[in-house]
Nucleic acid binder design. Sequence first.
DNA 1: CGGCATGTTGAAACGTTTCAACGAGAGTGG
DNA 2: CCACTCTCGTTGAAACGTTTCAACATGCCG
Lengths: 242, 242
Amino acid sequence: MSKLSGASHSRSANGLSPVPAACEGGCRFFVDDLSKEAAIHHAAGPAITYGKNEVVYRQGEKAAHCYKVVEGAVRVSRVLMDGHRQVLNFVLPGETFGLELSDSYTADAEVVRNALLLRCSRACIMHLTDAETEKRRKMMAMLSDGMSAAQEHVVLLGQQSARERVAMFLLRLAHHARIEDRGMIEVPMGRQDMADYLGLTLETTCRTLTDLKTRGVISIPNRRQIEVRSLTGVQAAAEGDL
Amino acid sequence: MSKLSGASHSRSANGLSPVPAACEGGCRFFVDDLSKEAAIHHAAGPAITYGKNEVVYRQGEKAAHCYKVVEGAVRVSRVLMDGHRQVLNFVLPGETFGLELSDSYTADAEVVRNALLLRCSRACIMHLTDAETEKRRKMMAMLSDGMSAAQEHVVLLGQQSARERVAMFLLRLAHHARIEDRGMIEVPMGRQDMADYLGLTLETTCRTLTDLKTRGVISIPNRRQIEVRSLTGVQAAAEGDL
DNA sequence: CGGCATGTTGAAACGTTTCAACGAGAGTGG
DNA sequence: CCACTCTCGTTGAAACGTTTCAACATGCCG
């Protein structure tokens, strides 16, 4: 269940001399607008398709590429010696991961369900960020985004109750789904994944979801969908009011 | 209780044209070796002295500078609406903070006890990183370090028990104090600070410290010092064995 | 239609928090 | 220099929330 499809290379290089192979054509990695990206790469770009639970890279491997999610979701996690797992991030469409400056990856990255990823080699990143101010700025912005995400996560884990954690998580998904007041969230990851991200057990996560359902702020038609019935309600839960 | 002493500016600029005022002389901000730094800046460099609990910047303020700790310790934290505080990081000598790419700071930074800080304006950082590849690389490495620190913190908060958290914290301090097997740790921050960093209450932190003392892996001569009697023991505690 | 992974619920055990009281140390003024 | 005070740290006991273990439900795939 794994293949690196559609990795068609070689295109007209720009003027600059030794451009690494993995992302010619100016490396669309730095392009912001995702809809464009999706369109382009569905065609024949250097996008890669991954299947459910497929491993993108493992902790300790040489950090050769970084990635942008076009479709699907990726789980960045670390496994402790005692077997516990902490999910560091769920990477949703438009977001990047694997942008490490250390020589090897510091966490595992696996696809949650199915995903289409954009890939750019480290060498290419380095080349481009050395040459082009604009892309350099963008890359720093990416690093910076990753940083603030991690800090939010720290606050979540350090200070929030189970209900607040789950609600905040839903809020993030709702935001990504552009929900204003009410609407359906597609939940790509399973309960165990959610739990590992939130620093809770599977059971607590589940119970908390049920609790929010009982309070009427959400409904759960099936395991992969959660309907937000009142975004305000979820926000209240996330802030400890309720 | 607050002043920005020793902010003596203006020195011979290098050849490059519009170098912002705050860090001439090539901006020693990117120099790694701290002992040199300490020596230089004790003299008359652009180092700034801060007193106990003095605020370096506040969340939301325009992000004008970033900092490197030469002496002392800085607490980077965020306060939630419910009054709880999460310490995101304790910045020890040789480490940097405030290196944000967003327009305003995303957290508060306060000095724990007394500190000597090196400061570099954002404009200067930008100028230098646009101009010099070497410094650019270094800056990315700094961002990257901050990132991995935050991720370690996430794992700590998401998966570890009180004893593991406290032990890991001690381990970090011990590492910084270059303790191999046994030795004294100077603890710059108070118990409440530790607790807020570890996502525990003050009481639990305290009890856990006592517990480690009872088990003989540390001793606590006074509130600002902790003696590591067996680094292996602390490591064991940090990993859940014990 | 099994069979297996995933999700849900219940009850008891556990660890952390909370509230409350008490100690110890540092700084200040008599 | 000592006593006072105030902050900070330590300890105790009960309350609370989360985890654990166990059973059961649901849905998906062969």
